[in-house]
Amino acid sequence: MRKKALHILFTLLLMAGTAGLNALTLDEAHDILNTIDESRNLTTTDFSAVMTMISEDPDKGVEKMKVQQFRRDDKDMFLMLFLEPESKKGQGYLRVDDNLWFYDPESRKFNHTSMKDSFGGTDAKHSDFRVLSLAEDYKVTTITEGKLGKFSVYILDLEALNDEVTYPKEKLWITKDTNLVLKSEDYSGTGRLMRTSLYPKYTKVSGKYIPTVMIFIDDLIEGKKTQISMTNISTKTLPDTIFTKSYVERVNR
């Protein structure tokens, strides 16, 4: 009898213990996804930044591309102007009124281009710039706690809820205090690691956290990696004239 009571007590203790470890419930974890979405998507403000993209390819070597971004996400407008390399300086993509225009500063001419075209010859596609929604697209399946470098993190395993996403499974490393994503791993449906993303630097702009350094590692092709850094970040309202063809022409004068 005594033995049995002890056993129950022990079980209860054990349960309490695991509950204590699992400080986060699945619902709470899902809320984190919402927070991440909110802090990342700038649907209410304009956004401008200089994006530097350095791609390493074992075949092509190191290439650097610097682009000035202007975005007004709620109106689905953007302008991207090439700053580097010099050979592409001034070329621009202007998305406005469901049209995507390409501008060649050398001939000072615009032309239609398709959203499907790959962006500036890189792996990134125009369609990759659509609004992110972790909370809508994924559900959290497991939560563990761990360390990444010196940071205490929650490690969330996500599974896609629909077929809108590119990767059916993801793993996120999220700081415990401010819920910043430090690292994510993208998996195929068969559970194979395809891409690792690292976010070692953030900045806080008008209450939102924006990663300023991002590293994307292709886990299938050895030595293929892209690092992106953001500078000159601003969420100030941009003049409407920015999203016009004439601005693109004037800036190239």
């Binding site: 590119t166 993208d186 195929s188 449906g189």
Partner: peptide, 8 residues
Amino acid sequence: TVTGQRNV
């Protein structure tokens, strides 16, 4: 994949 997910 047929529904557009990356796979390997």
